[in-house]
Amino acid sequence: MASNLRQEFIHFAVDAGVLKFGSFVTKAGRTSPYFFNAGLFNDGANLGRIADFYAQTLIDSGIEFDMLFGPAYKGITLASATAVALARKGRNVPFAYNRKEAKDHGEGGSIVGAKLAGKVVIIDDVISAGTSVRESVEMIRAAGATPCAVLIALDRMERSGKDDALSAHSAAQEVGLAYDMPVAAIANLNDLFDYLSVAEAGEQLSQYKDAVEQYRQRYGAV
């Protein structure tokens, strides 16, 4: 995807209050100078906009796919909205998502939406421990379909593990290696840093550039 579209996404996420800067403790217990919460894309306009970014990223990636899958819970909205955006761009594909608990009445089961078939792209917000991806891969394979890629909003590009035993790879890289499939992202940590380095970010946000660079030097994966 063109770098200007990546920057457009970062700018959009900041304006929407989804990407914030300051001091935040991550699930891994690290103190991060930024925080991304896709759950705050919580109105129609913003959801439609991020869906366009997902759809365009997927189209530009050249990944061959037949349908989308959204892991509960954030992935449900993101996958369905991305399917709508793809249809507007001339690519109408089915989508499905899972329930946290299997339903024992009606249609039953844990999968809702289209039947899992063909090459399936998993749509999520970020990859932390990779748990939702692993569960999604298992469900897709159990249905006889093929997980072909993961598409996320922001790749933090962080090495996983404890500070005294950091992995050589980021969480996204480990998912790609574990399941032999690409992990695409609308934008990544490098794009975020580039955004902070330009005048458009403004003095208020530019002050976090050094903190983001230090964080990237400490935890960033090549």
Rank of each mutant, 00 (worst) to 15 (best):
K119W: 14
I63C: 10
G75I: 14
N92T: 15
I59F: 09
A51V: 13
A114E: 00
K115S: 15
Q56C: 02
M67F: 09
D60F: 07
G106H: 14
Y54V: 06
G109E: 05
M67C: 11
A51T: 10
E64D: 12
R141M: 01
S61V: 12
R49L: 15
A83R: 03
Y73D: 02
I140H: 02
R88D: 03
R88N: 01
N92A: 15
V137Y: 00
S128W: 00
G108H: 08
F95D: 05
I123R: 08
L47F: 07
L116M: 04
A87W: 12
V126K: 00
G113R: 10
E138Y: 07
F69R: 12
I123H: 03
A72Y: 06
I50D: 03
I140G: 06
V93Q: 03
S80H: 06
V126E: 04
N98W: 03
V126R: 01
D104R: 08
G48H: 13
M139A: 08
V133N: 06
D104C: 06
D66A: 15
G90E: 06
L58H: 04
K100Q: 00
A55Y: 06
L58Y: 03
G109S: 03
G75M: 10
A145V: 10
V137Q: 00
T77F: 14
A55N: 07
D60P: 05
G130K: 04
G48W: 05
V120G: 11
D43K: 13
K74F: 08
H105V: 04
M139R: 07
K115I: 11
D104F: 02
G106S: 10
R134Q: 05
S128T: 07
A81Q: 00
I59N: 05
G130D: 14
T131C: 05
D43V: 12
K119G: 13
A87Q: 09
F69T: 06
I111M: 15
E135D: 06
K119Q: 13
A145F: 07
V112L: 00
S80Q: 08
T82M: 03
E107A: 14
A72N: 08
S80Y: 02
T131G: 03
F65K: 13
M139W: 05
G48R: 07
E107I: 09
V84N: 14
K103G: 13
K119L: 09
G90A: 07
E64C: 04
G118L: 10
F69W: 09
L78H: 04
R49I: 12
K100M: 01
E138H: 09
F69V: 08
L86S: 04
N46H: 13
F53P: 02
L78V: 01
D104I: 06
G113D: 13
F53K: 06
S132R: 01
N92Q: 14
L78E: 04
R91I: 09
S132L: 05
G118Q: 09
A145K: 04
G70D: 02
A45F: 09
I127S: 04
E101T: 15
G62H: 07
K89P: 12
G144R: 13
G48K: 08
S80I: 04
T131W: 07
N92C: 14
